[in-house]
Design a protein around this nucleic acid. Structure first.
Lengths: 255, 255
DNA sequence: ATGTCTTTGTGAACGCGTGCACAAAGATGG
DNA sequence: CCATCTTTGTGCACGCGTTCACAAAGACAT
């Protein structure tokens, strides 16, 4: 799971728990599917199954939004779609810029799930002059020299960073300085941002590493116990350098 | 000397908290960077800063692995890199298949962060016959008819699904039937799997929606309060159909 | 109108994760 | 060898999130 940073004791004001917010998009997706099949109402049990969560959890989540259900019947699909959309801020248009148009940046630009949720790719930005003008997903790539102007002209407040790790912090700072207050970071690095700026990160290799952990566990504890003994530092060193010269490196080659 | 044949508590019921496991890759990344700069030791404070977490949390996380630090000094970087790698199962080679070679699948195939962590892309699989044989990231794409054989021949236990949502569940079932027990799912859909199979999901649009929520909050509570009153179902319907015909759609176009 | 049946909304208990604060361990210097 | 200083490892308390279990609310049939 990507984690938000900036740990405050929680927004005790309007207080929808973070965990609930993170599930709302899940519910919304399931509800949209039901809506397309013209299903009028749905029970917490059915919807929970479709969203892959516990029904009690779902009801508690919805209780934070208000009492939108009808006892004995369930929830009105269309109404709930609207309420959740509104709560998430998806009833308005969110212009987004993607910085770093490598393989991943291009994939994001082509990703259909954005447009269908109120997100509009306002611009694609890359540091490589050779990319400038080249259309990706029908949008011409612009050079990063114009980053600030692009942000301001389009009123962008959400930025996506898909650059190599080494460039991410600098890009982040320019985005923030230009007015961006929410950042989705795909670069494998920790971004430091001023108070008031939200960062969520998605690290593809971290997810795989977590799977590997569980996979190893499943593969049997006996193997781990066998190769247990203390390992000399020398062995360690050679092992880690074996990994190749890329080490912590770039998520995606930026053209 | 952190080592010195620390006798394993053995009784450690292998109970490493999920939250800790999820942070180990973060520490590993930071440690790898230090290792490349030939930094010999690091304090919990420094490493925590580099990994973007609290130092107390980091020390507690490491305490689950054992006592690998030296009081008054800190942690031996190389030794810790090895211990965490071993704990995560990264000292062995993990063959991985990627199913669905669209924009995202191709980006994943090109992603450098995999190979550098012990993950090896054993095969690329796509349902489009036109893709078969075409090299992506230097690896020829194979047709999904051969999925089972590919899995078994390569001893693959980790699969990555980057297909459209509609195909994901079917692909998932074939992977599991062929012996895959860990799945990283990029398709925007809930996968149901038998007991013993781990699934982690990455949904790009969900992350953006969470950011939008906080962005809306930051943009001011007054706007939300103003447009609050009950909204008729009619308005809701038109709003949701405005979203276009893609609705819940595919993460990535597969070719 | 009344009773029955279904499903919501939520109080309460519980468990996990986080952060504090400090004692113990070891390095370092005299 | 002793004193001092640094940093780890962890006991403890707290708060968030999850789950259970059930009373209240409304639909529906008679």
């Amino acid at each position: 799971m990507a984690t938000g940073r900036t740990h405050r004791p929680a927004t005790r004001s309007r207080g929808i728990p973070e965990a609930t917010v993170a599930r709302l998009p899940l519910y919304l997706r399931a509800l949209t599917a039901l809506s397309e099949r013209s299903v009028p109402t749905v029970s917490s049990e059915e919807l929970a199954a479709a969203a892959g969560v516990n029904s009690a959890k779902l009801r508690k989540d919805f209780s934070y939004l208000g009492s939108y259900g009808t006892r004995g019947v369930g929830y009105d699909v269309e109404y709930l779609v609207y309420q959740i959309s509104r709560e998430l801020g998806l009833t308005q248009d969110w212009p987004v810029v993607i910085v770093g148009i490598g393989n991943l940046g291009a994939a994001l630009a082509n990703y259909g799930g954005f447009a269908s949720r109120g997100f509009r790719v306002a611009a694609l930005i890359d540091a490589d002059p050779a990319m400038a003008g080249k259309p990706v997903a029908g949008i011409p790539v612009q050079h990063s020299d114009d980053l600030e102007k692009i942000i301001q002209d389009n009123g962008v407040s959400i930025g996506v960073i898909a650059t190599p790790a080494g460039a991410a912090q600098a890009v982040c700072e320019r985005l923030v300085a230009a007015g961006v207050t929410s950042i989705l970071n795909f670069a494998p690095t920790v971004l430091s941002v001023p108070e008031g700026v939200d960062v969520r990160k998605v690290d593809l290799s971290i997810e795989l590493q977590i799977l590997a952990f569980h996979e190893q566990r499943k593969a049997g504890e006996e193997a781990a116990a066998a190769s247990d003994g203390g390992v000399p530092a020398a062995a360690v060193r050679s092992d880690s350098t074996d990994q190749g010269p890329d080490g912590d490196m770039p998520a995606v080659m930026p053209a």
